[in-house]
């Protein structure tokens, strides 16, 4: 790269605590569940930050907090210098267009009763209300081609596709509003290894072509190492260590990271 990349997202001391109700009214309320507790990191424009950890480590909650799908207890989320935490819903609205998300389970994240055109054009209806139906359809066709599906697929329903194809539809939906940052929440964990490789390559091609920035959440260390420019290892709501992938996964300093690495099957 010719010039140093600018910071797109900066997360400072982020905490997401869920209150736990007392079993009986006269008992004192237990300690809140600290899903995320004091997490700080930055994401440079055009790069991929990978978050890796076990179930319950807070990696998905961290991603969700960035687009207000999780309640933030404390901290700052600076997006292009603006703190998203204090914004009113109306002021936050434009950021929903700039930040999109793709989900783990391609079977549950697409509406089964809507055809692909309806699924992919829904974000267009919200963020580009002036667009005509013909324009929307043309845009959806273009998006399907970008994710290597065909224009004929527009009228089909989710059940007619395989898991990998459904994940491509989810990616097309995220791309519809031309976002800058995509939060990828375990996008390949539910897929066969053969399909996983295709979807990972597709995400990287799209990044090169469109200059996208990814926050890539996963539990497979080899996938995270492959896609990331910067890796965070999370455990129990905190960042255990962070840095470039070859330093963190090639030569980990923390015992926890070593334990994760030891569990990966080698062959």
């Amino acid at each position: 790269m010719t010039q140093p990349a600018a910071t797109l997202l900066e997360v400072r001391d982020l905490a997401v605590h869920y209150p736990v109700r007392a079993p009986w009214f006269f008992m004192p309320a237990p300690q809140p569940k600290k899903a995320v507790d004091g997490v700080s990191f930055s994401v440079l424009r055009g790069q991929t930050v990978g978050i890796v950890g076990e179930s319950g480590s807070g990696k998905s909650t961290t991603g969700k907090a960035v687009i207000r799908l999780a309640p933030v207890t404390r901290g700052a989320i600076l997006y292009g210098g603006v703190d998203l935490i204090g914004l009113s819903p109306a002021d936050f609205h434009p950021y929903r267009k700039r930040i999109q998300m793709i989900f783990q389970d391609p079977y549950n994240s697409l509406n089964p009763r809507t055809d692909v055109l309806g699924i992919v054009s829904e974000p267009l209806e919200i963020h580009f209300p002036g667009m005509s139906s013909a324009e929307k359809e043309a845009r959806c066709e273009e998006l399907l081609l970008a994710v290597q599906l065909s224009a004929d697929d527009l009228r089909k329903h989710p059940h007619e596709f395989s898991g990998g194809q459904r994940q491509r539809i989810g990616i097309a939906r995220a791309l519809a509003v031309q976002p800058e940052l995509i939060i990828c929440d375990e996008p390949v964990s539910a897929l066969d290894v053969s399909v996983q490789a295709e979807v990972v390559n597709l995400l990287q091609d799209l990044q090169d072509k469109l200059g996208l920035t990814y926050l890539f959440i996963g539990h497979d260390l080899a996938v995270i190492e492959h896609v990331s420019d910067h890796v965070l290892v999370m455990n129990a709501g905190k960042i255990v260590e962070q840095g470039p992938p070859d330093a963190i996964l090639g030569n980990p300093k923390e015992e926890y990271t070593r334990r994760l690495l030891a569990a990966v099957p080698r062959f």
Partner: peptide
Amino acid sequence: CIPRLGEK
């Protein structure tokens, strides 16, 4: 097609 650790 399986990505391996330490392989660039």
